[in-house]
Amino acid sequence: MLQHIEFSRPLRRVLGLTLLLATGMAGAQDPYPNRPITLISPFSAGGDADLAARTYAAAATKALGQSVVVMNKTGASGVIGSAQVVAAKPDGYTLLLARTGSQAIMPAIMPTSTKYKWNDYTFIGMLELNPYGCVVSNNSPYKTFSDLTDAMKKQGKNLNFGTAGVLTTNDMGPRQLFRMLKLTDQIPTQLPYKGTGEAVTSLLAGQTQFSCGSLGTFLAHIKSGSLRALMVTTAERLNELPQVPTARELGFAEMEQVVGWSAVFAPAQLPANVKDRLVAAMTTIAEDPQWRTMTAQTGSLPYIRSPEQTREFVQKQYELYRSLGESLNIIDASN
């Protein structure tokens, strides 16, 4: 028969503290990751963000040894999904596919409605750069970029263009172009969609006359002949589109500052061991030939960088769009 043993109060305290320490040490030693990771893509399926998210997820699953599952959380030009990551538990199981619009443009132009700052995250690393350009349907009467800009001047708001939402690169690139063309209130009409994929669909259907954005989503349609690229903002012509002139060649060198990009962010206050594991995975992904091939197939350029380099890059992008917003007088008036 077991006897009941009565411990003294001081001994009970020591035993309880020992149990807590042992439990804490066991928890601290749990390997990361030990369950699936959710990657929030703040734009709709089929667009540039979604392509980058799924390409990264496939490579990260191999590098981390756990499934990385993409969740499209759309709305408000990427703000809804981005805000969800800001508010998430900083344990490494919720990550963000960061994009130019949601992480640089929105905080720069609409700081009140965005509610998060460009640096309210743990920076894991840059992923890629997305060459930017303007495209039309192959049935369009605009055969050259000059044809399109002439139409902008003559037709003004009667011309429309599709975007992945206001204050995305699909929106800000044309704004920069309209400013350079000295258009005022008679600017083409923007038709915002939930993502670049939907904007491409509207262009193919003839619902919009042109679209400007990262060329990844357009590329397959350009190669098939259903869309025609008129201009790219890269410093040199793209190898895959050698017939398409650069903005600088066409006299619009200032358009070179508009470029798409993807990065991986996590909530702030991420534990150092978790951050180190994710950063190490980025190094592995950078050498993954399948990831590099898949990234190139989407029309993007591999651009993996360290957390420090990523922070510096994003800050410069934020400052660029803050300056552009001020020159266009479109900064949120309440700030």
Score class of each variant (00 low, 15 high):
Gly65Cys: 09
Gly65Val: 13
Gln66Leu: 02
Ser67Ile: 03
Ser67Met: 11
Val69Leu: 15
Val70Phe: 08
Val70Glu: 02
Val70Pro: 03
Met71Leu: 15
Lys73Arg: 10
Gly75His: 05
Ser77Leu: 09
Gly78Phe: 10
Gly78Glu: 06
Val79Met: 04
Ile80His: 02
Ile80Cys: 02
Gly81Phe: 07
Ser82Glu: 01
Ala83Asn: 03
Ala83Phe: 03
Gln84Ser: 14
Val86Cys: 05
Ala87Gly: 09
Ala88Gln: 05
Ala88Glu: 04
Ala88Ser: 14
Leu95Asn: 00
Leu97Pro: 00
Leu97Val: 11
Arg99Glu: 15
Ser102Leu: 02
Ala104Met: 14
Ala104Ser: 15
Ile105Lys: 04
Met106Leu: 13
Ala108His: 07
Ile109Cys: 07
Ile109Phe: 07
Pro111Lys: 10
Thr114Tyr: 06
Thr114Trp: 06
Thr114Glu: 07
Tyr116Lys: 01
Tyr116Cys: 02
Lys117Glu: 14
Asp120Met: 08
Tyr121Lys: 04
Tyr121Asp: 00
Phe123Arg: 00
Ile124Met: 05
Glu128Met: 11
Glu128Arg: 07
Leu129Asn: 10
Asn130Val: 12
Cys134Glu: 05
Val135Ser: 03
Ser137Asp: 04
Asn138Ala: 15
Asn139Lys: 14
Lys143Ser: 12
Lys143Gly: 13
Thr144Asn: 12
Thr144Tyr: 08
Ser146Asp: 15
Ser146Val: 15
Asp147Cys: 10
Asp147Phe: 11
Thr149Pro: 10
Thr149Trp: 07
Ala151Trp: 12
Ala151Glu: 13
Met152Phe: 14
Lys153Cys: 07
Lys153Gly: 11
Gln155Cys: 06
Gly156His: 12
Gly156Leu: 11
Gly156Met: 11
Asn158Lys: 15
Asn160Cys: 07
Phe161Lys: 01
Thr163Met: 03
Thr163Phe: 04
Val166Arg: 08
Thr169Val: 13
Asn170Lys: 00
Asn170His: 14
Gly173Val: 12
Arg175Asn: 03
Gln176Lys: 11
Leu177His: 09
Arg179Met: 12
Arg179Ser: 15
Met180Lys: 08
Leu181Lys: 11
Leu183Met: 14
Thr184Asn: 13
Asp185Cys: 07
Asp185Arg: 08
Gln186Tyr: 09
Ile187Glu: 11
Pro188Ile: 09
Pro188Arg: 00
Thr189Glu: 07
Pro192Asp: 01
Tyr193Val: 03
Tyr193Trp: 05
